[in-house]
Simulated scan of single mutants.
Amino acid sequence: MSRFTPQLTGAHVLVTGGSKGIGRVIVETFLAEGANVSYGARTVRGDEFSLFKDAADGARAVGSVLDIGDPASIKSWVENAAKEFGRIDIVVAMVSSSSSQLETISKSSIASPLFTEASPEAWTKSFQADILGLWTLIDATTPHLEARSGTGSIVVISSVAGFEAKHPSARGPYTTFKRAQATMAKDHARVLGPKGIRINTVTPGGIETPTIVHPDGTEELSSFGKMKRDKPEFMDILKSQVPLGDVGEPQDIANAVVYLGSRLAKYVTGANIFVDGALSTFL
């Protein structure tokens, strides 16, 4: 019997959208497990994790500017990351070109839908990033993951907004494409399984992302923090819709991602794990 631990020392993880929010905590959690991380985002300072002191076994994080709407940018990032660490073990795809679920809600009336002015151009841009970008990421990393001889893993981050029609934003691409990402992951499980690669989805509900403190001491308020500041009544309403009675933390999502990425979940593929406090059952 093996130890009930992720056993990720020396592994290499790719994380899109890893500079802030849930992605940032995912990066930190893998570092704490001794895994090296390559993270990509629209803007990267390079010092995002310089204050993080819990990395184990010399694990380090390398950030790169990444445009998920540009296939060439994705392919270049993947190959450079593989060259840097000599391998790719786990891929975490979580970035979306659209505004987040909570950002959308904060701009709307909580009680009524916000019918966004979604142009064909907005839908096209979101499709290129959220759908074609994810497809390109999976395709570009498959040869590297297949080389791991049965331990390669992909984790896609969706959103409960993609599964519930009562989401406050209507007409925009966010809900449609978050559902499509989960479907794409499930579909790929049939193709990647014979290659020894697992692919699963984690679907968050309301997650309170923390304020970021940069190395120079400046603070960057998260989208959730801005919402609490500008629409404080939202928190009580959101909590009232969660059977567990509270919103989640980024660590809740990171824990699920590490589990699915590791050999603890070696027989789990094509699954979609809701980490939402049963919010989806209320909606």
Results as ranks from 00 to 15, higher is better:
Asp236Ser: 12
Ile273Glu: 01
Asp54Ile: 08
Thr9Gln: 11
Thr5Asp: 08
Asp246Ala: 10
Ser98Gln: 11
Glu79Asp: 15
Leu244Glu: 13
Asn80Gln: 10
Ala56Gln: 11
Ala41Tyr: 03
Phe127Ile: 09
His188Leu: 01
Ile237Gly: 07
Ser99Ala: 12
Glu103Asp: 12
Gly150Asn: 09
Ser97Val: 09
Gly225Tyr: 15
Asp89Arg: 03
Met1Tyr: 07
Ser109Pro: 05
Glu164Trp: 15
Pro71Asn: 04
Ala189Trp: 00
Glu121Ala: 06
Ser73Lys: 04
Ser2Arg: 14
Asn36Gly: 07
Lys125Phe: 02
Pro120Lys: 10
Thr211Arg: 07
Phe224Gly: 07
Leu51Asp: 03
Tyr267Gln: 14
Ala111Pro: 03
Pro71Gln: 05
Gly23Ser: 10
Thr142Arg: 02
Ser153Ala: 11
Ala161Leu: 14
Pro232Phe: 13
Pro143His: 03
Ala41Ile: 08
Val78Lys: 10
Arg87Gln: 11
Lys107Ala: 06
Arg148Tyr: 00
Val65Ala: 14
Val27Ala: 01
Gly86Glu: 07
Ser99Phe: 05
Gly205Leu: 09
Lys239Trp: 08
Thr5Leu: 13
Trp123Asn: 08
Ile22Ser: 02
Ile90Met: 06
Ser64Ala: 13
Pro243Phe: 07
Val44His: 14
Gly86Met: 08
Gly162Pro: 15
Asp67Ala: 11
Phe163Val: 09
Ser109Glu: 12
Ser19Trp: 00
Lys266His: 13
Asn255Trp: 15
Thr176Phe: 03
Asn272His: 06
His144Val: 02
Gly63Phe: 13
Ala61Ser: 09
Thr151Trp: 00
Arg87Thr: 04
Arg190Glu: 03
Gly248Val: 06
Pro215Val: 07
Arg45Thr: 09
Pro210Ala: 14
Glu164Ser: 10
Ser262Cys: 11
Gly40Leu: 15
Leu132Thr: 12
Ser38Arg: 00
Asp236Arg: 13
Arg263Ser: 08
Gly206Phe: 09
Lys125Glu: 13
Ala72Leu: 12
Ser96Asp: 15
Val13Pro: 03
Thr183Glu: 14
His214Arg: 13
Glu219Trp: 04
Ile212Gly: 10
Thr209Arg: 01
Leu66Phe: 00
Ala61Phe: 05
Thr43Gly: 08
Arg190His: 06
Arg3His: 13
Thr281Val: 15
Glu48Lys: 03
Lys228Gly: 06
Ser223Met: 05
Asp130Gln: 10
Arg42Val: 07
Trp135Met: 04
Gly58Val: 02
Asn200Ile: 08
Thr9Pro: 14
Ser169His: 05
Gln128Ala: 14
Trp123Leu: 02
Thr16Phe: 01
Ala82Asp: 11
Gly133Val: 04
Gly217Val: 12
